[in-house]
Nucleic acid binder design. Structure first.
Length: 863
DNA sequence: GACGTGAGCGCG
DNA sequence: AAAGCGCGCTCACGTC
């Protein structure tokens, strides 16, 4: 007998049902309601996406497209959709359009009612809408990729909840066996959970009474003394602070919490009006002593606690041992995953314990201060205590989940994050006056230019049509103006496919004076807003900016930077480069040196694939791989070698070959796209015979029309592609093995440790490996260089990192030493540490003169 | 007014 | 047969 929410008749018209009155969605004949169904012998409720599901869908009733495939998969596990599960829709109604949050939450009462009546032990969320409706009230960032493959103890609703993709995703990508294999793994995971997880009732719920709130001075001193007398092996701690960065006057550590036991955390106010000055002094002495004691230190983001301890308490924590944030990242590379709140929820079902405190921790001004001091003290301390507790639990869980390969990467990152704490603290000197003045200047320039542009005929026509002048910074208005009012031919769509793109590329093709002027204006606005303004906001009391360098956010196990982002300051466009870099200066009397790894992607490619042809290209510096490929791409075997060095011709062709063919091919692109891009960039470049590439191919093909010649070129690139992969056949073979390994295991292993997982495409499977590993070389080098500078008590400091580049604020007297140490570490010692580096690495130096800005830097000439 | 998202663009 | 990849930040815009 089927248990169902409503009668098990096919469809029930909505009008008869009182539950849906509030929703008010127009549910006429086409939009029918589908009641819950199934026998649920596994005590498992499947909540399926509905917006994808049309009533006339042939492929399945409840799950919709992909239902047949889903059933087949269940059958392989000897399961039956109707017998073993209950199924209900995210919304009972079916509609062609998306449901609003409100509609989804109204309909959710049907789901809660079902759960109350049938008491499932597990809930499987099938697809993004199901995930949204389930977590909506508690979390943002509700994408499938963030939540899939987890089994969460949801105490609030009394079930284990297991979100996975909707099988529609597999059907829509029918030919992609990588997606299919990953889905099968996720489903296996879900079924395994259902078979093995205990009843949630028997799982211990975290208890907030485990937090000891200490507002009594004697108690604080006595507990801290206890820790000092009997140092625990491990201690987790956590600060609540007045902001993210401690460098400005007035920043404080409001409270401290710590935990060394599964069921006990301590939490006390620190720089808080609560204490008399003498009391606070005593507490500080004790706490700093703890920071130095032999206990192994653990925190969620150790870089944060390290920096604040050093700046506010002037104490360097000793024996950092575990960073649960980096560990979380190491165990799972997906993005938006490592936050403590998220981790606490997915592991122990702790939702929203920060709800009341969160508003007090958000910065309220341009200067980065929050209102933590106004937060209710008891709640603040409780919150901090839970953080420490959760960190301790996380550590214990993570320790068991590690394997030696992942731990190798983890160790590198823990050391790296502490080196980056030094980098953050040192910061970068800037010319504040320059940035302020230039910002004002640009504001004026932008205003003036905007006025001028609005006088153009095109803008007047826009005004006529819409009764207002266009906003030249709005892509919507530009789209209207160029393609609706002026009726120009659209060139391409945006990524979402919803709109006609109006980016710089399109603007240049529109080829009108206004379009060109708009692009120029947009660039200046970008420089003014993203760089100048951002820098000015971030200048601290020491006249320096202190960008963050994080290691726990990027899927590929690269690093990231923010506040301001030091990794995307303009360099290609001369004017943008000049404006934004002119205010970045060395410390007084210093110069800025930086080195970057030469052709690091190619070298990593060689380390992974061990392709002998690739290796010999690298080893023999008289050869040039990209030049040789360019000769093939452009059929220019006969051009003299000197031609390939000419800036405006041969060298450009080589450049576009490298970036338009070689790398895209490595990462999974193919001849058609490559040919298109190369033709666009290169068809007007001159050959050694002084004719354009287009003309050159006209001669070769003996064809006349542009289209015919282009077609010939595409076909030619196809042949080059075939020959290329024949030449680098070991590389190709490695690529294929890499795909196969992922298909079987769902993993991409990096040579430097770590493994990437999740839904990866062919391109990502290759790209992630090279990208992450290349950064790890730089990170290891930076860590060692930083350590050696410190050991020698040098004045020179590492001040930044840009993926494969290391920036050093150098004292001129130490310049030679800086180069020596860095070169030794980055090219020689690194190969003793990473044995898998089987080709030589090279670094290239650039430098400024003493006291001169980063814009003025020039390449260091080889001696 | 806060928040999320899309488009666009800066870097490797 | 075929989608190069990864970030952070700003602005505009629509929704809550």
């Amino acid at each position: 007998m089927t248990t169902s929410f409503f009668d098990d008749d096919d469809f029930v018209t909505t009008s008869t049902d009182h539950l849906c009155v509030e929703c008010r969605r127009d549910v006429k004949s086409l939009y029918k309601k589908l009641p819950a169904t199934g026998n649920g012998s596994l005590k498992t409720l499947i909540i399926a996406d509905t917006p994808l599901l049309l009533p006339e869908s042939e492929s399945g009733k409840h799950i919709g497209d992909g239902e047949g495939w889903f059933k087949d998969q269940l059958r392989k596990h000897k399961l039956n959709l109707i017998e073993d599960f209950w199924i209900i829709g995210t919304t009972l109604c079916r509609s062609r359009s998306e449901y609003t949050k409100q509609e989804m939450s109204l309909c959710f009462s049907n789901i809660t009612k079902f759960i109350k009546e049938n008491k499932p032990k597990f809930v499987i969320l099938l697809g993004e809408h199901a995930i949204k409706s389930w977590f909506m009230t508690r979390f943002s960032n509700l994408t499938q990729e963030r939540w899939r493959g987890l089994c969460i103890p949801d105490f609030e609703r009394g079930v284990w909840v297991i979100p996975i993709y909707h099988p529609y995703y597999v059907i829509a990508n029918e030919k992609n066996n990588l997606i299919q294999s990953q889905y099968i793994r996720d489903l296996e995971f879900a079924i395994n959970c259902i078979k093995t997880k205990p009843n949630l009732k028997n799982v211990t719920k975290p208890d907030f009474n485990d937090v000891v709130i200490m507002k009594d001075y004697d108690q604080v001193i006595s507990e801290l003394s206890y820790v000092l007398e009997k140092p625990p092996k491990f201690i987790c701690f956590d600060y609540e602070t007045t902001g993210l960065k401690p460098y400005r006057q007035g920043h404080k550590i409001a409270s401290i919490s710590y935990c060394y036991d599964y069921h006990k955390a301590f939490s006390f106010p620190y720089q808080y009006p609560h204490w008399k000055p003498i009391q606070q002094k005593q507490i500080k002495l004790k706490w700093c002593e703890i920071l130095q004691n032999p206990s192994l230190k653990i925190a969620h983001n150790i870089k944060f606690e390290d920096v604040w301890s050093r700046i506010i308490l002037q104490t360097n924590p000793a024996h950092w041992y575990w960073c649960s944030m980096i560990a979380a990242h190491s165990l799972d590379n997906r993005s938006k995953y490592t936050g403590l709140k998220f981790q606490s929820f997915i592991n122990w079902g702790l939702p929203n314990y920060d709800k009341e405190i969160k508003p007090f921790l958000e910065s309220v001004d341009d200067r980065g201060f929050n209102r933590v001091m106004q937060a209710p003290l008891n709640k603040l301390l409780l919150y901090g205590g839970i953080d420490s507790l959760a960190t301790f639990w996380l550590y214990n869980y993570q320790k068991g989940a590690m394997n030696p390969h992942i731990e190798k990467g983890f160790d590198l990152f823990v050391e790296g994050t502490l080196a980056l704490a030094d980098v953050q603290i040192h910061g970068i000197n800037v010319d504040t006056a320059y940035y302020r003045d230039t910002h004002i200047e640009l504001d004026n320039r932008i205003e003036k230019t905007e006025k001028e542009l609005l006088n153009y005929e095109e803008c007047k026509k826009f005004e006529k049509a819409y009764g207002r002048l266009p906003n030249l910074g709005s892509s919507k208005d530009l789209e209207l103006m160029f393609f609706k009012v002026l009726k120009l031919e659209p060139i391409k769509l945006t990524d979402s496919g919803k709109n006609n793109a109006v980016d710089a590329d399109v603007m240049s093709k529109l080829n009108t004076p206004l379009a060109k002027a708009i692009t120029d204006l947009a660039r200046i606005k970008k420089v003014n807003g993203t760089y100048l303004l951002q820098f000015i906001k971030e200048i601290d009391d020491d006249g320096r900016i202190h960008p963050f360098y994080d290691l726990s956010t990027v899927k590929t196990y690269r690093g990231s930077s923010n506040g301001p982002n030091f990794q995307n300051i303009p360099v290609r466009n001369e004017e943008a480069k000049k404006i934004s870099r002119s205010g970045i200066i060395p410390s007084p009397g210093h110069k800025i040196l930086d080195f970057d790894y030469g052709a690091i992607e190619v070298r990593m490619g060689a380390c992974y694939t061990k392709d002998p042809v690739l290796i010999s290209y690298i080893m023999d510096s008289s050869t040039d791989m990209h030049r040789d490929t360019a000769m093939d791409i452009f059929s220019l075997r006969k051009a003299p070698l000197s031609f390939w060095k000419e800036k405006k011709t041969g060298n450009k062709l080589r450049f576009f070959t490298k970036n338009g063919f070689v790398f895209p091919e490595w990462y999974g692109s193919y001849y058609k796209n490559c040919a298109k891009n190369i033709w666009r960039e290169c068809s007007e470049i001159l050959t050694h015979e002084g004719i354009t590439i287009k003309e050159h191919f006209k001669r070769i093909s003996k064809l006349n029309g542009d289209a015919a010649v282009y077609e010939y070129f595409v076909n030619h690139v196809k042949k080059v592609e075939e020959a290329y992969w024949k030449k680098f056949k070991v590389f190709k073979q490695w690529q294929d093995n890499q795909y196969k390994y992922y298909e079987e295991t769902g993993l991409v292993k990096l040579l430097s440790g770590f493994e990437c997982k999740g839904y990866l495409g062919r391109n990502e499977i290759v790209n992630y490996a090279f990208q992450g590993t290349a950064f790890h070389g730089l990170l290891w080098s930076l860590t060692q260089i930083n350590a050696e500078f410190q050991e020698r008590q040098m004045l020179s400091k590492v001040i930044g990192q840009i993926h494969d580049c290391c920036v050093i604020d150098t004292h001129p007297k130490e310049e030679k030493l800086v180069r020596q140490i860095s070169t030794d570490i980055a090219t020689k010692r690194i190969r003793e540490y990473f044995k898998w580096i089987i080709v030589p690495l090279i670094i290239e130096w650039e430098e400024t003169k003493i006291d001169e800005c980063w814009y003025s830097k020039i390449e260091t000439r080889e001696e």
